[in-house]
Simulated assay, not measured.
Amino acid sequence: MEEERTNIPAESTYDTILIVDDDEINRAILENIFSSQYKVAEADNGRLGLEKILCNKEQLCAVLLDVVMPEMDGLQVLRRLNEEGIPAQIPIFLITEEASNSTMREAYELGVMDVISKPVIPYMVDRRVKSVVELYQARRRLGSVVERQQSELLRQAEQIIELNRGMIESLSAAIEFRNGESGEHVRRIHNITRYMLTQTELGEGLTSEEIDSIALAAITHDVGKIAIPDAILNKPGRLTPEEFEIMKTHTVQGERMLEHIPQLKEHGAYHYACDIARHHHERWDGRGYPDGLKGDEISLWAQIVSLADVYDALVSKRVYKDAFDRGEALKMIREGQCGVFNPALLERFFAVEQEIWKFYGTNGEA
């Protein structure tokens, strides 16, 4: 009978009161008060009581703890429970015949909910314990509701982020289709940019969220081409000087377009997207466009996207040219035939280019 009474059923949830007292009569009195409303478990010393509490936190709705006990007294148990943060999860009542001011002060500092004097008065103990148990249960229910609401809000936020990402990717891919491309160009620019920031020292000092935002922003680098006439955008031959001047405007047009998308302004990629759209054709020597920025005046992310864009353009077939051999493309970049780049950026690019090439498939075709 004793064994059945002291075991805590594993399937219970916050419905068991644990009585920790070395006096069998006191345990019987307290059990008689609560057994009609709660399941009751017992421990006849502090060490056993501590073990039961730590092993059954999800079942206990209250602990009635004596002060003077063998092996571990009530305050020793309290100190251990306080270290584990248990009093914030389970209300603990100190049951004592005599308690000095120092004992009571320490007990309350350690998180005791209430101190009940012996001999106990049944209706008073029942009322005090039951009220606190109901308070804790209400708090748990509220916490559960708030947690579910937070999870739902997080899920909705993630859906919005994915929707925004999808819109950005779709818009950028649409520009590529209009330009006679498959849409894979923007995906490769995203992948190369992200790889350079995560697999080289270039990303040092940037958080993972910032790197994700930069990689997403890289997708929008050519969004301004939507404002370029088809006759110029898809011209198979070399552009005339006048046509090239019009083509160059896709940088500022892209920035303006991004600035007029209200939803994008709330996204972490917005600042990077505007900068990349405007400055991915700047050159390290200051001879790029539209602003003639030189050296480190060009942001790191714009520099990386610029190099990724040139690399992808060289090794990919376009309406105006066939794909260059990979070795030839690297030679052209190294010799500055396709723009002037930051030497430190080039060094890091060539160090990982063999891995980047894998983005183009096992057969090396873009």
Rank of each mutant, 00 (worst) to 15 (best):
N363H: 07
M167D: 10
L345M: 08
A218T: 07
D212C: 03
Y320G: 03
L258K: 00
A277H: 01
M332G: 04
I95S: 01
G85E: 02
M196Q: 09
Y195N: 05
E4A: 15
H279V: 07
N179Y: 08
E353S: 00
Y14V: 05
Y195M: 13
V129T: 00
P70Q: 05
D296N: 15
G268R: 04
Q337C: 10
P229G: 06
V132D: 02
E355H: 05
P290T: 12
I25Q: 06
A107E: 07
I226L: 12
V133E: 02
T193S: 15
A227L: 08
I211L: 08
A157M: 04
E24I: 14
G254M: 03
L330T: 09
P9Q: 03
A28S: 06
P236S: 05
E266P: 00
Y108T: 09
M257N: 04
I161Y: 13
D285M: 11
T240S: 15
V68Y: 09
P119I: 08
N26L: 01
Y108S: 03
L171V: 14
V186Q: 01
R348N: 11
R47L: 14
D312C: 10
Q199A: 13
L110Y: 02
G295D: 14
H280T: 06
D114K: 02
S151L: 08
H190V: 04
W357I: 01
Q337H: 13
R148A: 09
L163S: 12
K39G: 13
A231G: 15
G286H: 09
G237I: 09
I17A: 05
A107Q: 07
E347C: 06
E259F: 09
Y123E: 15
A99E: 03
E84M: 14
K225W: 04
Y320M: 07
K331Y: 11
G111S: 11
A344G: 05
E51R: 06
V63C: 08
E84D: 14
C274L: 10
E31R: 13
Q337A: 14
A43D: 02
P91A: 04
T193W: 05
A366N: 02
T96I: 02
K57A: 12
R127T: 15
V146C: 10
S172L: 03
D296E: 15
I219L: 09
S12V: 14
L171E: 08
D291N: 15
V67K: 00
R256I: 10
P229V: 06
L300E: 07
E152F: 11
V352C: 03
T16V: 11
Y136S: 09
G288K: 10
D222E: 07
I160M: 10
V20H: 00
G286T: 11
N32L: 04
G364K: 01
L206V: 05
A138N: 08
A277Q: 03
P119L: 06
I189V: 14
R326C: 07
S299W: 06
E210I: 11
L60Y: 10
L48A: 12
G292A: 15
V20S: 00
Y320E: 12
I25Y: 08
G364C: 01
N32F: 00
M247G: 00
A41S: 13
N32I: 01
F359R: 00
Y14T: 10
A302N: 03
V115L: 13
P91Y: 01
R79A: 05
A308R: 01
T96D: 02
Q37A: 12
A10N: 11
I33K: 00
D275T: 11
Q156G: 06
D66Q: 07
